[in-house]
Design a protein around this nucleic acid. Structure first.
Lengths: 244, 244
DNA sequence: CGACTGGTTGAGTGGTCTCAAGTCCTGTGG
DNA sequence: CCACAGGACTTGAGACCACTCAACCAGTCG
């Protein structure tokens, strides 16, 4: 844990929703927070629990998943430095609908519900931030629904690799190098398929020269090839449409 | 169109997010709105358009859909009397990500963006309403993602019938009678499958005695049978169950 | 050294899609 | 009023994608 974390000097704040706050406001924020370390595999909150506040990821990686009826994890999202955690249930004023679990050792800052809502009254601009954030997340979720319903597994995997590149990728010449903190099974849980099927398609992509990998080190060699896997016919549509 | 619509006496307001407003606040709301009739099949807004305000459905039925890469409609939701329309893009401050189309003749009230946001400043309680609404919608969307990824088409159809019952159903003894304003193709577009597959499973459910139907008149005879289609094993889970 | 987890591969099966034909219903113009 | 066109619905046959089951290998941790 080393030195204590300070919201004002927090290096990940620039990625977070607290990005535009003034120094005074940050000071208040700083004083209401508690910093908690979590170990790999530790559960942060559980589906069904009542939220008592808001988490902010300072370091590490968290997966948020639901359990399907046959007790498989369905990963809804990955959270990392700068991301809020558990905000949906808090703002919706209902129990958590998913479970959050540390994938690595993590450091989370926690803001208690009561303090946090009081803070809201004082910094009303945060309302707009939150409304916008929730609205965009909802848009992303709906894009996701559409993508899932209309794309077979191979395309979903190609799309997953491309979006993981945005978060975990580092350009390396024309290629991208990724170090993914995900097992094959977790990749499967992200796109709603089985471990075996993920492996098969990864192998296929490798055989075709789109990617290479060794363990959890991946290199995307041919981005456009992967992109064309996601829509074999034609790639764009008029009027500003986009896929996540 | 008949008589003009008044927010204060509006019959559908009890279903809407304007439910708890005071008479004065409603008066303001009433004066900023425009009421617009739409005919069946008319498009209200398009994917990619910039939102200029908020719609509120007074009567009729609207479908909100995206187009998949192979130009199929993917229906995201149905809106009817009392429902807001186009609020997500408005609050997220981004273009519409879906298209809204009248399925029947409709009457919509429209609140212009500028007026509406000014109104927000005056009635801050609406912030909580909106944040809660968006949070819950996001929760529903995420549940939906999980359901889609983990259930085969037969189960999704069973679930669809059960949830349509909540909106369009009228109890009739032990059974439920539904009059669905949906074609088979639209039912398919709701659960991400094809018209033919919907027909086949509807036939199967009829053969098994779960439902009967004639055109768009459906009767659900055996609710628990349909429910058991949605989860063959067991229906609920303790909070905090984990997969190995 | 065994137990265990994660990854890889094969064989077989089944659910769902595609293509295609055919029927029923509805609206429209003659 | 009828003929017709077009859409919605129904059904069949075949193909294929992805799942299940099962085996095997490679690390890793006790």
């Amino acid at each position: 844990m080393g030195k204590p974390i300070d919201c004002i000097t927090c290096g990940v704040r620039k990625n977070s929703l607290f990005r535009e706050l003034s120094a005074e406001n940050l000071q208040v924020l700083n004083q209401m927070k508690v910093t908690i370390p979590y170990r790999k595999r530790q559960v942060i909150f559980c589906e069904g629990n009542t939220p008592f506040g808001l988490y902010c990821v300072n370091s590490g990686m968290v997966k948020v998943y639901k359990l399907t009826k046959d007790n498989q994890q369905q990963i809804m999202r990955l959270a990392q430095a700068g991301d809020w955690l558990g905000y949906r249930a808090l703002f919706a004023d209902e129990p958590y609908r998913a479970t959050a679990e540390a994938m690595t050792n993590c450091l989370l800052c926690f803001f208690e519900k009561k303090d946090f809502f009081r803070y809201f009254q004082e910094v009303p601009q945060l309302f707009f931030t939150v409304v916008k954030k929730l609205g965009r997340e909802l848009g992303i979720a709906e894009d996701h629904i559409c993508a899932i319903l209309s794309q077979p597994v191979r395309q979903r995997l190609a799309e997953l690799l491309l979006s993981l590149k945005e978060v975990f990728g580092a350009p390396e010449g024309k290629a991208y190098r990724l170090t993914l903190p995900l097992s094959r099974k977790e990749m499967a849980a992200l796109i709603g398929t089985t471990q075996q099927t993920v492996v098969r398609f990864l192998m296929e992509f490798r055989r075709k020269g789109y990617i290479t990998f060794n363990g959890k080190q991946y290199t995307i060699l041919d981005i456009s090839a992967l992109e064309s896997e996601t829509s074999p016919s034609f790639g764009f549509r008029l009027s500003g449409t986009r896929t996540a």
